[in-house]
Design a protein around this nucleic acid. Structure first.
Length: 428
RNA sequence: GGAGAGGUGGCAGAGUGGUCGAAUGUACCUGACUCGAAAUCAGGCGUACUGAAAGGUACCGUGGGUUCGAAUCCCACCCUCUCCGCCA
């Protein structure tokens, strides 16, 4: 959520900066609501003040055993107008809140302006693309050849966009998550977290998935009670750790790493990436989250992105880093780096990590604060990034480390997690 | 799932219709005392909105209701704790 003060005092600037994200936002209704709110709020509070002071008088008179009927008659006359003002005001405030909570974050000043992914800017490339003297297979064929990847059975069990991994391939998947968790805790200073895979709507509101993106979520009905939702990313439970809390400044930065499955309905992506593990309803991800002071946020974003990149480097997977342009960024983000891993079978780079800084956008929704040097509560800044998406990393390893006979070499960093196994072959 | 108790300021804990945004204790901050500290004493010490300021308004789990007036009464919901049952 944007600072409503900013909307009131510098509406033109807000409109201009939001326009760079594409899609016009009509601010006329907001200004109309605000104008009415201002006078009505004043009037309402004025009436409330009158009522309070007259009621106090009644209390004093009655306390002394005197007759209060004259004052009671007077306060009774306020009743109707007060009730009407209060009711109208609460409708107004709700409308204003609905409007503001649907506004995306302001893009950072250093974010390239652009319309869509074609305007994203490549920042760096790392690694050497593997060259093959045989026909390159994609991860679906490699996985099938290894008897390690089965989409048909998963579809029978549940439906499309699910997978079963088996044998050494399943183990490789597990090894990746372990390796990532170990590296981030031991070398990058993160604290490991185990967190709920279902959350309530308040948590989803806090990180910005609700109210706008409900159709991307799987919902768990609970009869009369509010539904729960399967998490679309560990960002939700982990960031909401600090919802409605004031963290002592000396405890910042908070750095958490959390491995969870993620569940996305992929509504609206019908027909895209239907083959293979690239786009599933369920996938594992190791997520990095930081809660920091505003001064530390920019540097933390660079560091967090490096933490994610380090995983790709340790695994020997070629990648590039791009900065998303204003039109391609997510709703809550102020600035986003995507890491894209090289996939030989597709002859292209594919997103494997997204590292974003959110400014105070999420913190304002969550009321996540810290006590600043003046001892006053101040909104924290939040950041997160994948470090990495486990399923896609598995895909990248299968494709980049494939050999002519259909076997796949195990990257050195993972061998100790695989019981010393150096090559996954069909017979294994 | 059954029965009971309870949700108040950083923490503890009073407050069952009226000068209550809220006693008291504790923690914290400032000052005095001290060479310094402890102890003691005095003062301060929630959040948000609004206002130049004085001040005003809202907030006692959440949402409704009753009333001139609600932390206090009524209804619904959420959560916590205790006991019983069940269970990985």
């Amino acid at each position: 959520m944007l600072d409503i003060q900013l909307l009131r005092t510098q509406p033109e600037e807000v409109v201009q900066r939001l326009a760079t994200r594409g899609g016009d936002i009509d601010f006329a209704p907001f200004h109309a609501l605000e104008a009415e709110r201002k006078t009505l709020q004043q009037r309402t509070q004025d009436l409330q003040a009158q009522r309070n002071s007259l009621s106090k008088q009644i209390g004093m008179l009655k306390g002394k055993g005197e007759d209060a009927s004259a004052v009671m008659a007077e306060v009774g006359q306020l009743g109707d107008e007060l009730k009407a003002s209060e009711a109208r005001l609460s409708v107004l405030l709700e409308d204003i809140n609905r409007f503001t909570s649907a506004l995306p974050n302001l893009p950072g000043a250093d974010v390239p302006v652009g319309a869509d992914e074609n305007d994203n800017v490549e920042i760096k490339r790392w690694g050497t693309m593997p060259s093959f003297d045989f026909e390159v297979k994609d991860h679906v064929d490699i996985g099938a050849g290894l008897n390690g990847m089965d989409f048909e059975t998963a579809t029978k069990l549940t439906g499309s966009r699910f997978v079963i991994l088996q044998g050494p391939v399943a183990r490789l998947h597990r090894a990746l998550a372990q390796f990532m968790l170990d590296t981030h805790t031991a070398e990058h200073g993160y604290t490991e977290l185990y967190a709920p895979y279902m959350v309530n709507s308040a948590s989803l509101y806090g990180t910005g998935q609700l109210p706008k993106f409900a159709e991307d979520l799987f919902q768990i009905p609970r009869g009369e009670s509010e539904p729960y939702y399967l998490i679309p990313t560990a960002e939700v439970p982990v960031t909401n750790f600090v919802r409605d809390t004031i963290t002592p400044a000396e405890q910042l930065p908070l750095k958490w790493v959390c491995h969870t499955p993620c569940f996305r309905s992929e509504a609206g992506s019908g027909g895209r990436d239907t083959r293979g593990m690239i786009r599933q309803h369920q996938f594992d991800k190791v997520e990095l989250v930081q809660i920091v002071t505003p001064e530390a946020a920019a540097e933390a974003h660079e560091a967090l992105t490096r933490h994610a990149e380090t995983m790709l480097e340790k695994l020997g997977l070629p990648y590039r880093r791009i900065v998303l342009c204003t039109g391609d960024m997510g709703f809550s983000a102020e600035k986003t780096y995507d890491l894209e891993v090289w996939l030989p079978a597709q002859n292209t780079y594919r997103e494997i990590s997204s590292c974003s800084s959110f400014g105070s956008f999420q913190a304002r929704r969550m009321q996540a604060r810290f006590r600043n040097a003046q001892g006053k509560p101040e909104l924290a800044h939040t950041l997160n990034g994948s470090g990495l998406a486990v399923g896609r990393t598995l895909v990248a390893i299968l494709e980049n480390y494939q050999q002519a006979d259909g076997s796949v070499r195990v990257p050195e960093a993972l061998q100790s997690y695989m019981g010393g196994l150096k090559v996954i072959s069909a017979q294994a």
